[in-house]
Nucleic acid binder design. Sequence first.
DNA 1: ACAGCCCACTAGCACGCGCAAGTTATAGTG
DNA 2: CACTATAACTTGCGCGTGCTAGTGGGCTGT
Lengths: 331, 331
Amino acid sequence: MTRRITAADIAEAAGVSRATVGFVLNNTPGQKISDGTRDRVLSAASRLGYRPHRAAQTLARGRSRLVLLVLPDWPLDHSMRQYLEEAAHTLDEAGYSLVTYTRHPGDQSRPLWESLDPDVVVGFGAFDTETVASLRASGITKIYPNPDHQPDEAAASSVTTGTCLQVEHLHGLGHRRLAFAGTTDPRLSSLKGQRLATARECARRLGLDDPAARDVDHRDDSATKAVAEWRAQGVTAVVAYNDDIAATVAGAALRAGLSVPGDLSVIGHDDSPLAAMFVPALSSVRMDTIGVGRHVAQEALHLADGRPAPGGAPDVAANLVPRESTATPRG
Amino acid sequence: MTRRITAADIAEAAGVSRATVGFVLNNTPGQKISDGTRDRVLSAASRLGYRPHRAAQTLARGRSRLVLLVLPDWPLDHSMRQYLEEAAHTLDEAGYSLVTYTRHPGDQSRPLWESLDPDVVVGFGAFDTETVASLRASGITKIYPNPDHQPDEAAASSVTTGTCLQVEHLHGLGHRRLAFAGTTDPRLSSLKGQRLATARECARRLGLDDPAARDVDHRDDSATKAVAEWRAQGVTAVVAYNDDIAATVAGAALRAGLSVPGDLSVIGHDDSPLAAMFVPALSSVRMDTIGVGRHVAQEALHLADGRPAPGGAPDVAANLVPRESTATPRG
DNA sequence: ACAGCCCACTAGCACGCGCAAGTTATAGTG
DNA sequence: CACTATAACTTGCGCGTGCTAGTGGGCTGT
């Protein structure tokens, strides 16, 4: 059990004062250090294997340089992991660390932000009022998205660009009557609402009928009912909230003896592995979440440091991935 | 911008010394505090909304009470999230916080354990030597699983109990020639190896032929080739590494004009949503990961605190979930 | 009455670091 | 030459807590 190397050890090894070590290591602005001294300190630090004590730094400067990202408790697919990676990387370059945290509904233990005191707390979509209250009570003032602002259009667009691609794809294939299949998961309802609205808007712009909307769950017969209803209404193609929902709809159609895409085209969203593995393989939309991750990280840095805000919406590249589950309508 | 409430504020409000406040708040063993004083301190603390400064505590006692869980970078499904939730909860009850971290292959930024100095770092499966070196260099000594020990039988069993269920299920249905479908993902290769070995062992015990093993990837034609080969060998049922692999195999069989389960039974593992949504719905095995999460948390506490080790293997409840993709073999 | 003892507390240092204020030596200026 | 300005440091305080080493007062026993 060897003692920890502190800045004082470096100071002694380099023959300077502790303060000088601090100035060199943080290259503190407004401090003149000669090259010789700087080198001596730096080499001593690396020779001794110095690592700053995070807690001591936090205590001394009053900021933890931690950004807490609060995740939804739904499964994290690959694109989400990329998002996290990019955000963590951007923050790391700025000297901050990203810590992720998932708050579960029935969780009575104190949330992590109470004990970690992060400089910034970032969420997916807006925080609910209860959470905001808990954050405020913990002394956290820097929150993104800002709970005092209305959710802005720009941010919303990043979440719905793919939906238009779905609609346009089906329109391009010649479909005229579309339906929208949503999820029953309450945690996703706000996102679902945005995507449904976008689908409506895009359909209108393309001169299509207003899509019939239904929520679907793979654990009951809601998909079977929805498919029957849609067939009766002359719907030939379904825009699904995500690939899981697309699979549920396609599955119900297949079990009802319909052909996919012959009788019903189905398109998913997110391009999860499931989309490629399903039979028939599901057409989908792949989102480039990396741009979003960087954007969010920059917003967090803006709040933490006061450095300039990225401004505008994150750039999301959405790409259509056509597969077997969509085709021109029969007849 | 109001000042933070410190223990000194409470001391003043309660008319006692700062030390007394500390004793009351941590109810330090071996310290006698009269009931009156205790009440005054406690009520002052709650009245002022005191929350201890984590960094200061960390600095003062030399331990951060943070447990860092290093996650693999594959997608986190629902059972994994449950695992995390349970581990976090168990740790929380003991006054520790769980922080998760994903290290990505191409990530050149410093790993989170360098800056967070957690008391314990916990991994999934064993850490590779490079990672262990990085941990050691960061002064982290408490690592689970212990890198100095050989992976023990008990831990391995928790990861393979489900595999036997798969084999037994197919055996019970009357299958005699099985195959094992693995993943090509190198990150999963060690786990795959364990499951394959288990499948072999269980097959042997049941008097079955040694299963033919093949790795399969949904992005190429490996599954198609594997299915053709297995058919030629008289294989009637496939044990898949997980549900994704099961879907890939089942998909290849369907595309080859075979019937599932008529010509080929397929069983997956993990009971992911995909299994339920696939057509035909995939039989699978559901693991109770909650028990494992608690076990791991207790191991971490054992390392952190010296409290008794849980001992033995975590209790994993594995349940068979029979669906449409498995049936008695034809003929 | 006085030592001895326990109870219920207090004084104060240590943890490792950031940073404001002070100090010394040297160069520059009228 | 006296004086100021600057470079290149050093001294030392403060961040909020945990915890060890006291400290005084009341009670008991002889």
